[in-house]
Simulated scan of single mutants.
Amino acid sequence: MIYTTIINEFNTLKNPPNKIYYKGNLELLKMPKISIVGSRKMSVYTKNLTFKLAQKLSQIGICVVSGGAIGVDIESAKASLPYHIGIFANGLNKIYPKSNEYIIKQIYENALALSENEPNHIPLKHDFLARNRLVVALGDILIITQADLKSGSLNSAKHALEYGKDIYVLAQRIGESDGTNELIANYKAKIIYDIDVFIAQMQEYFSVQKCYTQNYDEFLEFCKNGANLDEALERYGELVYDYELDGKIIIDGVLVRSV
């Protein structure tokens, strides 16, 4: 479907999209929004904090925006559904990357997916950089949880600075996220030292008070009464181990069950 009225946040871009294709819930556009981006090869530390951050933002009524890529993008999507907007470089009739298919389908069905490209478009390298400007433009604030030097996430930071948007980064060890550490060193980003303190700041900033509940989770329902591990892996793949790491399920021998 085509969203023919260009979203206001995109009108100020030097190269705004001519049209936006969408699948899902357009009501999410009315919520306060924060964009979360970062490395495709994130550390376990970054993965855990990205999940916690996105989940807590969604629970206070802030919609998380990402680019649907592997790594930080998809972790923020898993944590924030159904209050999530994914902006894709591919056309929405295509699922890309395939490794994220389960979560991307949930975005299509329960959240909101946007793309400026025709429905069957197969993305090229420049499409991902073009997508970055939309991810940044749609969020009121940009969070980069991990980034290398000369990465797509630093391209997103460049857009944020151009648009006058605040940038936040996670506190990281030297050598593990040189891109975000460089942003800090050059006074271009603020540091999130404590997620709960940051959430309280965002709650005040956006004047949001309501605590939202998450939507039905098919995988957790599947595991509720105990399920065979091999069957769970066949149906849901790496999501099984992601949920175990996040403390949502327990793997006990050949069985997996919801916590």
Rank of each mutant, 00 (worst) to 15 (best):
Q55I: 01
K56F: 06
L57Q: 02
L57I: 09
L57E: 03
I60V: 13
I62C: 06
I62E: 04
C63H: 02
V64T: 06
V65G: 02
S66M: 02
G67N: 08
G68K: 03
A69R: 06
V72R: 06
I74E: 03
I74W: 01
E75R: 01
A79T: 01
S80Y: 04
S80M: 05
L81S: 01
P82I: 11
H84I: 11
H84S: 13
I87M: 04
F88S: 04
N90M: 11
N90K: 10
G91P: 04
L92C: 12
K94R: 14
P97C: 11
P97E: 09
K98Y: 05
S99L: 10
E101I: 08
Y102A: 00
Y102G: 00
Q106D: 07
E109M: 00
E109D: 10
E109C: 00
N110E: 12
A111S: 14
S115K: 03
E116S: 08
N117D: 04
E118L: 13
P119T: 05
P119R: 07
L124Y: 12
D127A: 12
F128K: 15
A130W: 10
A137P: 02
L138E: 03
G139C: 07
L142Y: 08
I143C: 06
I144D: 09
Q146W: 08
Q146V: 08
D148G: 11
D148I: 13
L149F: 10
L149R: 11
K150H: 12
S153R: 10
S156G: 13
S156Q: 12
A157F: 10
A157W: 09
A157Y: 09
K158F: 09
K158N: 11
A160G: 06
A160I: 11
